[in-house]
Amino acid sequence: MLEVANLNARYGRAQILNGVSLSLGQNEVVAVLGRNGAGKSTTMKSIMGMVRQKTGQITYEGQSILGKPSHAICRAGVGYVPEERRIFGELTVEENLEVGRRDKRDDAPEWTLEHLFELFPNLSERRKNLGKQLSGGEQQMLTIARTLMGNPKMVLLDEPSEGIAPVIVEQMANVIAELKREGLSVLISEQNLHFARLVSDRAYIIEKGSVCYDGTFGHLDQNPEISNKYLAV
């Protein structure tokens, strides 16, 4: 589905990614772990075409998407849920969803407003409210729902559990399970090992812009020194 090979990315003079390689299979949920500033978000943004200075290969469904503008990548079926949520505060919930709406595609499940409001009941109640009036948890749901309105085949979820209450985190875990059930592929970046273990099939750990672990959670649990070294647990 997605193949990233030897990805380098920089902002100005600062080299953020140093040869990141990872892959995501069909209908797989994979976690990218690492602490703040390790390069998780930059990896996500690079895949999404939001980092300009980058080299390496990014292949999505056999086609190179390196250097493509982000709207083209989105139209190819990649959904992106940013870390800071970035909902449109001056737009209503419905308008936020409208911005994300794209035509149905044959090779991906279709998400209707009704289906999304079922999955996120809070949003349904607040559909006429402005984005900025929502709580942090509601905003997190809105940003995911907005991306799903684009009927993606693959979703990049950047730190979905960051800064929200445990109840919502549990809901988030359910949502990710639902995405997998619907047949989507999901790449999650996370700092929270517990949450990542709960929702994903396998994991990468990124440190200082390179992948330093690639394997299962089982192996990670048997070797706690790895997570101690690289993760903030």
Partner: peptide, 14 residues
């Protein structure tokens, strides 16, 4: 209106 707030995000939404 969305682009007035965050044009990069609008791009990432296709």
């Amino acid at each position: 209106r969305a682009a007035t707030e965050d044009r990069e995000m609008v791009g990432a939404l296709g």
